[in-house]
Design a protein around this nucleic acid. Structure first.
Lengths: 133, 133
DNA sequence: CTGGATCCATAGCGATACTG
DNA sequence: CAGTATCGCTATGGATCCAG
C-alpha cells in the first residue's frame, strides 16, 4: 500500500481488474440497473414468471407508469420476456430470460455486501452528518 | 422451472436469496453507487490514493462540481478518506477505506458480468429497437 | 489547487385521467 | 387487466464565476 504509484500513466495495474475500459462498462450497467425499480422487479421475477399486477402488488408502491417503463427497459435489453395471452381481460406474463437470471448472481453478491456493510455505512453517515455543519 | 408458484404469498423462496428485505438493500446500494460517477471514482481510487485533479484527469470529463459532490458522498458513507495537506497551494488526497476497498470486489463481479453480456444486451437492444415503432 | 455558489437544462419519477 | 398520455415536481448534472 506504500510503493504503488510512480508513473503508471494510463496502463493501469496488471494484477487487479478495474481497467478504465472495464470501469466504463460497470458504470453503464450500474446506471442501467441502478434506477429506483429495476433490481426490485428483477428480484420479484426471480421467483418465477409474474403478471403485471402481481409484480405491482409484490413491490407495493410502484406506479403503473414506472412499472411499465421498467419492464420495457428490461425487455429491450433482453433480460425479460413479455408474453401476451389474447384473453379477455388480457393477461401478460413477464419472465426472466437466461440472461436476466444470470444477472441475479452478481446482484446477489452486491446484496450480501449491502447486508454486511450497511450498518457501517449508516454509522459513518451519522458520524459525518454530526460533524458537518 | 415448471412447478414453482402455487401460493408462496409473502414468504418467498427458501433456496434462493432475494428476500424482499435483501432486495430493498440491494436497491438502496445500487441507487447510491449507480449514479454517473461514483464507481468510476472508486475504480480510480482502487489504484491507490489520488489527488483531486489526478482523479479528474483520470476520468477525463467530470466537472469539478460533480467530482466534489461524488467524493463528499463517498466520504460521508465511510468509503473514502479525505486528507488535507496544509501547504500552499493546498493538496488533498483521497483514498479508499477498508470498507471502500471491500466494495471493489462485488463491483468487479458486476464488471465481469457486464463484459460477458454487454454484446448480448446490445444485440437485444438493436433487435428490440428495430421491431419497435 | 481545491472547492464553494449560482444558474440552467434535462432526466427521473409520481399522480391522474383515459383506452382496448 | 394492462397499459398510454399528460402534467408537474424534484433530483441530477453541466457551465461558469468566485475564493482561500
Amino acid at each position: 500500500m506504500t510503493a504503488q504509484r510512480k508513473q503508471e500513466g494510463t496502463k493501469s495495474i496488471p494484477g487487479t481488474l478495474h481497467v478504465p475500459e472495464e470501469c466504463r462498462q460497470v458504470s453503464e450497467v450500474l446506471q442501467r440497473i441502478g434506477d429506483k425499480w429495476t433490481v426490485l422487479v428483477v428480484g420479484e421475477l426471480g421467483g418465477g414468471p409474474r403478471r403485471f399486477n402481481e409484480i405491482r402488488r409484490g413491490l407495493g408502491s410502484i406506479s403503473q407508469r414506472m412499472l411499465t417503463l421498467t419492464l420495457r427497459g428490461l425487455e429491450r435489453d433482453g433480460l425479460v420476456t413479455r408474453t401476451v395471452f389474447p384473453t379477455v381481460p388480457p393477461r401478460v406474463d413477464y419472465e426472466l430470460t437466461k440472461l436476466g437470471r444470470s444477472l441475479l448472481d452478481p446482484v446477489n453478491q452486491l446484496g450480501s455486501w449491502a447486508r454486511q456493510n450497511q450498518p457501517a455505512i449508516r454509522q459513518a453517515r451519522e458520524k459525518f452528518d454530526a460533524v458537518a455543519r
